[in-house]
Design a protein around this nucleic acid. Structure first.
Lengths: 355, 355
DNA sequence: CTGAAAGCGCTTACAG
DNA sequence: CTGAAAGCGCTTACAG
């Protein structure tokens, strides 16, 4: 039996509608039903595997649909069902490797659940975040996975989403619990870091982190201060800017300017750690000889950089899976208490703290 | 006058349908028309600014629509118009900074033209690429921007798209001209590199590039060989793998194992250059003292790494703009000759070749 | 177990 | 200049 390519250009192989017209546009349910000699209602039920259809009908219709290359029109289904099966995701910067990995993992989870991902980049600006969320709402997404650009101002962008779209915050939370949150446990992660440094005999540390715009910026800095106190370490200097390699280089300059190099520098991302180490090296300092350095995130960079980084490995797959689970739950029922789900990370020891 | 938030949760501020029911779901054209006291036909025409509607009607309807927070339902419009205003993009790895920048630029161009981007990652595998393209087709995208995972095998994945979806290839081309192509001019870019190296007195070079799977892999290697011959340089060794930092480190090992270090190493991406330099340094070699190194792409990494990279700067914005222009043209009319549009890049001189 | 019909929200050719 | 109606492709409550 010859396979039919209804969407191909080859006029010979084209499927035909009852009136004999060749089908070049996508095959519709009407086409399938006509060929099977049943109503579109029955064809629809057979395809969906609805209860009250004979087994043989199910088999027959599905075979024909398959053969004709039928695929349900998502716009028609969405219009009828009031559900687009589209989920939006807004990230601050897709260029940050950690976010690229997160997007990848989220997309996989979403696809598994039968949803498509509509990705948007806020570039870290609240205004752009607002516009992105509005576009997603206009597209009638069923839900949104949001990495807030700002722990306070993002409340405004979220308001523009309207009240009835399910939202889950990932990686960063807003100050007010405006939606469920899934992210790494910063205190646990940095606890592992500081404990490791303590074992290495560290007593003074410098901190290269990010500013107060994100919850991670706030939490990681607070965690480092608390943990340093717990372990009777002194924080000799700190520099807080943004999550980038350039910021790491700037941190190195600031830390060197502040006085003698501490026993260790705790960085709040691998990007920062890499920028920092590169600049230190440029200035004639060696890591880990002159100071130990730790990162946060744990992607490819940590493994291939020299020295390899001691870093907190984010449970990316678990974060993505939980985020999607939370979102699907919210989409099913909008009420219920706001959840805050933090996942414990692991420490990966590399050469940057002496291996 | 009180602003109405039809999608909000506040029961007091809700807009109401003629029957008095509060509108919690998105406002429809029917709602707007009812409030304006006109038919939905007139409301639709006024909103679209169609010719045969009075100016005052246009103003009135638009004001009401604005006030009610009306946004056209894209699914209904798509169903009626046969156009989803969705464009798919398939990239090999979103984690590669150059692709992240490209996606960003393409999205901006697309939004400007009134389209939304549906992003998919093939992870460099043809099977996954095929699946992704099928999903995009099933979603009824109006067009696809594709970075082929393999210059030969991608022909197969493209076939699964069906004949009537507009496609533009970006950055990498398939061997057979299956669609319009937009990308950097590799020969021009590497010409700038080799000329620069010649001025620096280089007479032996090593090459750290990628394999024959992508057109860029083939073209850049061919270009380097041709240009080296033109400038009477000797290629002492070459290592070809993939576009990653890890591959750059492996290249360094291979090149060092092959014999004395050449005057310069030409890398076919900044990632490779960075991996290479890091590993060389680890082995006790300094760049640019012991050998010069050049990259390709020209993103943030080139500027913040130490040493800063001499690199070929891809005209990302122009590539994205042309790709979208080509795609829109294809969407408007499917026939016409297949175009191959290569853009000349510029050279950015950094410290990796002595500044 | 199957079919006819309604209806999701739009846009546009067809009448006035 | 405006309105009534058709129809895009589905799914499901309502009848048989």
């Amino acid at each position: 039996m010859r396979t039919i390519h209804p969407q191909g250009l080859d006029a010979i192989g084209l499927a035909r509608r009852p009136n004999g017209a060749a089908i070049t546009s996508p095959v519709t349910l009407t086409d399938v039903a006509a060929r099977a000699g049943v109503s579109i209602a029955t064809a629809s039920r057979a395809l969906a595997g609805k209860p009250r259809v004979s087994q043989e009908m199910i088999v027959r219709v599905r075979e024909i649909a398959e053969e004709m290359g039928y695929r349900v029109n998502p716009m028609a289904r969405a219009l009828r069902d009031g559900s687009s099966r589209l989920v939006g995701m807004v990230v601050p910067v897709i260029g940050i490797p950690f976010y690229a990995r997160l997007v990848d993992a989220v997309e996989e989870e979403l696809n598994r659940a039968g949803y498509e991902l509509l990705l948007a980049d806020s570039h870290g600006f609240v205004e752009e975040e607002t516009r992105r969320l509005q576009v997603l709402r206009d597209r009638r997404v069923d839900g949104v996975i949001l990495i807030p650009s700002d722990r306070r101002k993002t409340a405004t962008s979220m308001r523009s989403l309207g009240g009835d779209i399910a939202v889950v915050q990932v990686d960063r939370a807003t100050d007010k619990p405006l939606a469920d949150f899934v992210g790494v446990d910063n205190l646990v992660g940095l606890g592992l870091v500081v404990e490791h440094l303590a074992e290495r005999g560290v007593s003074t540390i410098a901190y290269a982190g990010t500013d107060d715009a994100s919850s991670n910026g706030v939490e990681r800095w607070a965690a480092v201060q608390q943990l340093a106190a717990d372990h009777e370490m002194t924080i000799t200097s700190s520099f807080r800017s943004e999550f980038s390699i350039a910021a790491g280089a700037a941190a190195a300059d600031a830390i060197l300017a502040a006085g003698p190099l501490a026993d260790a520098v705790v960085a709040s991302s691998d990007q920062i750690a890499v920028g920092l180490i590169s600049r230190l090296r440029e200035k004639g300092f060696d890591v880990p000889r002159d100071t130990l350095v730790t990162g946060f995130d744990g992607g490819e960079l940590a493994d291939v950089y020299w020295p390899t980084l001691t870093t907190v490995v984010q449970p990316v797959a678990a974060i993505a899976a939980d985020a999607v689970t939370f979102l699907l739950a919210r989409m099913a029922k909008h009420d219920g208490a706001v959840r805050r789900n933090t996942l414990a990370p692991l420490l990966q020891v590399g050469a940057s703290t002496g291996g």
